[in-house]
Design a protein around this nucleic acid. Structure first.
Lengths: 107, 107
DNA sequence: TATATGCGCAACTATTCGGTTTCGCAAATT
DNA sequence: AATTTGCGAAACCGAATAGTTGCGCATATA
C-alpha cells in the first residue's frame, strides 16, 4: 500500500481537509459538514492523512480533533527546493537570451 | 479523467522524470533508460505530465525532446504559500507555549 | 440502566491507474 | 526502395482508489 505525502495530497478532498484543519482542529463530523459525502468517506481520508502523518489526532472524550502536522507539510516544500534553484536561474533568463541570440543570428 | 498537477506528481516515477528533465531536455528513450519499465510506460507518464502542462515537447526530426515547464511547478509552490504563513507563525511557538502553560497549571 | 451520539472498521462496488503487448506511422539509414 | 529506429495510441490486465452501506464500540445523556 503506497502511502506518502504526494499521494495523500493528490486527492482534492484531502487538500480541502488540510486547508480546513490548518486553521483550527476539527472533529470528523464537523469536517464532513463541509463536503457532499458521508462521514465515513471523510473518515477514510483522515485515516490516510494520519497514516502519512500529515495530520494528528487529539482525543477529547468521545470526540477526536484532527489538526495539521505542519512539519510534514514542509517536506513538500523540501522537494520543491531543488526546482526553486532552476526557476530562479531562469528568471534571469540568461540562457534563454543567449539561445535566442544564437537562433536569430542564423536567420 | 482527473488531470491536475497534484495527481501528476503523486507517482514516484513521474517525480523522477521531472527531476531528470529538469536538468536537460531528454527523449523518451533516454528517459526510459533510467527506469526498469518499458518505453511505453514512460510514454504514458510523459503524456500525463504533458496534459497538465508540467512538461513541454520539442520535436526535432523524429525525436521528441521533453523539458520541464518551470512555471507550472510554481503552482505547487503557490498552494504551499497558504501554509507557509502557518508554519512561520508556529516557529515562534507562541500558541503552543501558551497552551502548555494552561495544561500544566491544571495538574 | 436504556438511549443517543461520535467514531473507526470491514465488506462490497465502480472506477481509475500503472503496467504490458501489439500495432501503425513517420523519419532516418541502407 | 527496403529496413531500421523513435515514437504515440489502443487494447488489455491486475491492483489500488474513492465511495457506499452496515456494523460494533466507546462515551455521553436521559
Amino acid at each position: 500500500m503506497r502511502r506518502d505525502i504526494f499521494q495523500a495530497i493528490a486527492d482534492p478532498t484531502r487538500r480541502a481537509i488540510i486547508a480546513l484543519i490548518a486553521l483550527q482542529a476539527m472533529t470528523p463530523n464537523a469536517i464532513a459538514d463541509n463536503f457532499n459525502t458521508t462521514r465515513q468517506a471523510i473518515s477514510k481520508h483522515l485515516r490516510i492523512l494520519t497514516e502519512c502523518e500529515l495530520i494528528k489526532q487529539e482525543h477529547q472524550g468521545r470526540e477526536i480533533y484532527y489538526s495539521l502536522e505542519v512539519d510534514k507539510m514542509k517536506e513538500i516544500d523540501k522537494w520543491l527546493e531543488q526546482f526553486r534553484a532552476i526557476w530562479e536561474t531562469r528568471f534571469n533568463q540568461l540562457d534563454e537570451l543567449l539561445l535566442n541570440m544564437k537562433t536569430q543570428s542564423k536567420k
